[in-house]
Design a protein around this nucleic acid. Structure first.
Lengths: 353, 353
DNA sequence: ATGAAAGCGCTAACAT
DNA sequence: ATGTTAGCGCTTTCAT
């Protein structure tokens, strides 16, 4: 079954009794070929187990059909899901994808990008909107298309596919305000590593400010992806003499940590304190209590990123920013605050709206 | 900063006043070059922002330096972690990796593999040991190295890097036996899709058989990755008139579902029933109760898979099977069974060992 | 130590 | 409809 040497296009041409050009044509369906010849070529291909040498095609066509994605980690399912969707759509349109992991480090990101270019990547999916100038100029110098994902900045300097993190997180704040909360806390990912987290905090803060509510420094805790950190943050927040009645987490993993810690400490969610997440990971609905969170259209973003890049590469005109809507998913982890003087006051506040 | 056209090796040669051969030599450090010439070439490279055309290198060298990994999904962190490690090591050794997702479907796996070959992949990381004959013969016909991961079969027909799923899961059963359990249940992933799950069930069953304990059909539930399915399975098991005192789950996600459902139903783990997981995902220690589980060296397996493939490709001699040890992590979710007549009997059983 | 030139396997004019 | 042939950008003998 397996021959001495891997067959190339010349072998196929010889076996089929045609020229290499004809072989190329029938394989790529790039021109009409007589049925008879077509049959012979296909037979030869099958008999020899011929698979075109990719590198030669790339070199000749001057096109690689390869996209790349650089993400902070694969170990948070939101990123995995995005990559998955990106890859699916790319494949549908005949593109391959290369993946690199930056570990939230811009220097690593830059280096990976350079490597990916070296490997033939022609379009880049980037996570968030916070990237080094070197990255942008590297891409620009080679005229390679890229798109920042999970952010949305119409008219911004860079193409984006995603949503407005400020707006979405202000919806989260609003939900809690409507329930009557006035004392808030936020647990977020490290803002320095993650512009989305920073924007989210921003959105919450300014929404609260509109109601005259302040978010003091000690009510804001940044932590990493480790569950233990989130649990500790929760413990700290509820230990204050004046604890928050609502805690907004900038991702579901953090909220999960809160739920675990609450169960452990005998604190009732949402009776004693409401907790919100962000992302709507697949298990969010299965927790006890089920998690109120913001649904984020991750898969759509992955698809759209692939489409954007490919359209750009193929010369199709595409808008530089595409927005997807995130929305609130109300579940059990949020409820009105425990009845207290403050709660009553906040009730009055809303009467006047 | 950016020139008209992307620079190629000829441009660099011209700018440095040397031949293309010399440029190639200095870039690849493949032969001695005078310091002066080296300096000039490096300057030219920097000035022109030259990056070698990958496809041309590949075509010329007849080597692609590309590995591929085909996994069922990226959405279970054990797979993401493996890929991550695989990719890291591959990169260290100068290889790129391509990723494909099979969705647990052997037909999709075959098709992806063919695509990957077409894209230049020269070595394959496969998940588990259950693959179609077509896949194996496709790989064999092109003499492409591959390795089945998270399984270990010394002397088997295919190279493996991993551990013996039967042995490891028998350790899990043993732990529970030592605690005095005699009524067992198993919640597993779909065995038809996943030979690891099948082997695990096998290992548990035969370990129990050695103690004369049977695992009746209704005490074995297969389910998918969805948390809700695991919760339902748990509910069903504890509703039996003769419920198990110990439940072994073939992955941590399933065990997590049990813990959630138990909390919901007011069932005490481990007081009423012990629950074990498998994988030791990063959050397993943070659950309440923390999860007793089998630690599985996923990252090491990813590394070893890359090493195996690269060694094979580079002609280094490597053993066809490499074993890594998984081991028990005792945490809170397992304890002796509630005291009953049966428990006393099992106590006697162990006195005689 | 350096240069000249022959491929690597394929595609895409250009011919016929 | 099919064949001929000149690249694509690089590596690697083979000379010098």
């Amino acid at each position: 079954m397996s021959s001495k040497r891997i067959a190339n296009i010349n072998d196929v041409a010889r076996a089929a009794g045609v020229s290499v050009a004809t072989v190329s044509r029938t394989i790529n369906a790039t021109a009409r070929v007589s049925p008879e010849v077509k049959r012979r070529v296909e037979e030869a291909v099958a008999a020899l187990g011929y698979i075109p040498a990719h590198a030669a095609q790339v070199l000749s066509r001057q096109r690689n059909n390869t996209l790349a994605a650089i993400v902070p980690t694969l170990d948070y399912s939101i990123f995995a899901r995005k990559i998955d969707a990106f890859q699916r759509r790319a494949e549908e349109r005949g593109y391959n994808i290369l993946i690199a992991i930056s570990g939230f480090d811009p220097r690593v990101e830059l280096e990976k990008c350079s490597r990916l270019i070296r490997s033939g990547a022609e379009g880049f999916l980037l996570e968030g909107g916070l990237h080094s100038d070197e990255l942008y100029s590297l891409l620009a110098s080679r005229k390679l298309p890229y798109v920042n994902t999970s952010v949305y900045e119409p008219g911004g300097a860079h193409p984006t596919v995603g949503f407005d993190n400020r707006a979405v997180s202000s919806v989260a704040a609003e939900h809690l305000l409507e329930l009557g909360h006035r004392r808030f806390a936020v647990i977020s990912g490290k803002a320095a590593l993650n512009d989305s987290a920073a924007d989210q905090v921003d959105g919450i803060r300014s929404r609260l400010a509109r109601e005259g509510i302040d978010l003091p420094g000690h009510m804001m805790i940044e932590c990493g992806f480790a569950l233990a950190e989130a649990r500790q943050a929760f413990r700290r927040l509820v230990s204050f003499q004046d604890p928050p009645t609502a805690i907004i987490c900038t991702n579901d993993q953090l909220a999960f940590g809160c739920i675990l810690e609450a169960a452990n400490a005998g604190i009732d969610i949402p009776g004693d304190v409401s907790v919100m997440g962000f992302d709507d990971l697949k298990w969010a609905a299965s927790l006890t209590p089920s998690l109120t969170t913001m649904y984020v259209p991750t898969a759509e973003i992955g698809h759209a990123a692939a489409d954007f890049l490919i359209d750009r590469m193929e010369g199709t005109d595409t808008p530089a920013a595409k927005e997807f809507s995130a929305h609130l998913i109300r579940r059990e982890s949020t409820a009105p605050p425990p009845t207290t003087r403050e709660a009553a006051e906040s009730g009055r506040l809303f009467e006047s709206m």
